[in-house]
Simulated scan of single mutants.
Amino acid sequence: GFLDLGGHSLLAARLAARVREHFAVPFSIADVFRHSTPAALAAQVRTRGGAGTASVPLSPVPRTGPLPLSPAQQRLWFLHRLEGPSPTYNIPLVLSVNGPLDRDALQLALHDLVDRHETLRTVYPPTDSPSGNGPGADGDDTPHQLILPPGHEAARPVLHLAEPGSDLTEAVRHCFDLATEPPLRTVLFSDGPDHHTLLLLLHHIAGDGASTTPLSRDLAAAYTARLAGRAPEFTPLAGQYVDHAARLQLLLGSPAEPTALAEAQLAHWRE
């Protein structure tokens, strides 16, 4: 069964999404837990054949004009506006480096990382409400994504060097200002020339627990390349997160004009 093999909620979400996309059948995370063996999952796919909605392929959207947020990003943006800058939704990735560390190569590798992943150089400024009255009139403003271009000064992550005796816990509690500050911060702690601790602090609006694996993998690849005096040769990405957010908008519409799929999901939760 799925749980016997070490399955958890993030893997269940990925599996349910793959079933929906590949077989075009309605399938939820709860279905994974209810029908947790491969045989039971296959039986559900056969039973539900033809009942799904048309798949919307992931395709690049123009990087001009206001770019939509995904529903998950909207939730985090709302909480950020409600509470103000807070460390509540920080995701820390702490890496130990044993041996000599080339800070210049690491700084270049961090630049390579944010050049590759648009979500790491994205800010979320408010936009005046569609009514034209602006946020000051009715308290409403609509968020959008602003992707800073590669090489933009504000998009370049600075490798902050921690003062001797600095507390890693305090560094983890940095409060991002999502309207103006990209959601990745890096701090290097050094205990002598051969022992270092690198903190990659990611805000949840740009990733989740599963994001730390590709984050550390791509950083390691970039650092290795920079140590050799060359730029990393990354495999091109099939899409960026903003393309996924745009696809969700096509699938779900807006609160004012939801699609039939969104209406069906809302009706389920209302019931």
Rank of each mutant, 00 (worst) to 15 (best):
V172P: 06
V172W: 04
R173M: 06
R173F: 00
R173W: 01
R173C: 11
H174A: 05
H174M: 01
C175Y: 00
C175D: 02
C175S: 06
F176M: 03
F176E: 02
F176T: 02
D177V: 07
T180E: 15
T180P: 04
E181D: 15
E181S: 07
P182N: 09
P183I: 09
P183Y: 06
L184N: 00
L184M: 02
L184A: 00
R185Q: 13
R185H: 14
R185N: 12
R185V: 13
R185W: 11
R185L: 14
T186H: 04
V187Y: 03
V187M: 11
V187C: 13
V187R: 12
L188S: 03
F189L: 13
F189P: 07
F189I: 11
S190K: 06
S190W: 02
D191E: 15
D191W: 11
D191N: 13
D191S: 15
G192C: 11
G192M: 12
G192L: 11
P193S: 03
P193V: 05
D194T: 13
H195S: 15
H196D: 08
H196P: 06
H196F: 08
T197Q: 15
L198E: 04
L198D: 04
L199D: 09
L200N: 08
L200D: 05
L201P: 12
L201G: 07
L201R: 05
L202G: 03
L202Q: 12
L202W: 03
H204N: 03
I205M: 02
I205G: 02
I205L: 01
A206S: 01
A206Y: 00
A206M: 00
G207A: 09
G207M: 09
D208H: 02
D208C: 03
D208G: 03
D208V: 05
G209N: 12
G209W: 10
G209S: 10
A210C: 06
A210M: 13
A210Y: 12
S211E: 01
S211N: 02
S211G: 02
T212W: 05
T212G: 05
T213C: 05
T213Q: 15
T213L: 15
L215V: 11
S216D: 03
S216H: 11
S216L: 13
S216Q: 10
R217K: 07
R217C: 08
D218K: 06
L219Y: 06
L219H: 06
L219Q: 04
L219S: 08
A220W: 07
A220Q: 12
A220C: 14
A220L: 14
A220Y: 08
A221R: 13
A221F: 02
A221N: 04
A222E: 07
A222S: 14
A222K: 10
Y223T: 01
Y223R: 01
Y223K: 01
T224H: 14
T224A: 15
T224C: 09
T224F: 05
A225S: 13
R226A: 10
R226P: 10
R226N: 11
L227N: 11
L227C: 14
A228V: 04
A228F: 05
